[in-house]
Nucleic acid binder design. Structure first.
Length: 116
DNA sequence: CGATTGACGTACG
DNA sequence: TCGTACGCCAATC
């Protein structure tokens, strides 16, 4: 405890929470999460938050989070540039040229499930 | 402590 | 319609 800081209230933890809520076989965007958290203008912070997703437990399905166009922009952060694609295809998400197919259909909007 | 970068998004030309 | 510029805010150099 000591100078323990409530990371659960940190913006980063909120991003992780939403990312973990993304159903298998579905994907979402940084902007969607940012917007849900009320920081739509700070969409970059969502990506930055994911930077620490690798050391957060439980595992954060960062591979289900892509940019606004469905491109796997963060694939280089998964150890291998093809890891993200493999993970998505493994869940049933079709990926072509680092871009999610039917992204519009597979898009999972937190506002649709968590809002209200 | 100031400048640059970054897994984005929107605005403007 | 496509390309470029800018803003966000935190972390890193």
């Amino acid at each position: 405890m000591t100078k323990e800081k409530n990371k659960l209230d940190s913006f980063f933890e909120q991003v992780y929470a939403v990312a973990r809520l993304v159903p298998k076989g579905r994907v979402t965007s940084y902007g969607a999460i940012a917007k849900y958290l009320g920081t739509a203008r700070s969409s970059r912070m969502v990506g930055w938050a994911m930077n620490g997703a690798h050391h957060v437990k439980p595992k954060v399905p960062a591979h289900r989070v892509v940019n606004r166009v469905g491109m796997l922009t963060g694939k280089h952060h998964f150890g291998t540039p093809t890891r993200m694609k493999e993970l998505l295809e493994k869940e049933g998400v079709k990926v072509k040229s680092d871009q999610v197919k039917d992204f519009k259909k597979l898009f999972w909007d937190p506002m649709e499930e968590l809002k209200i």
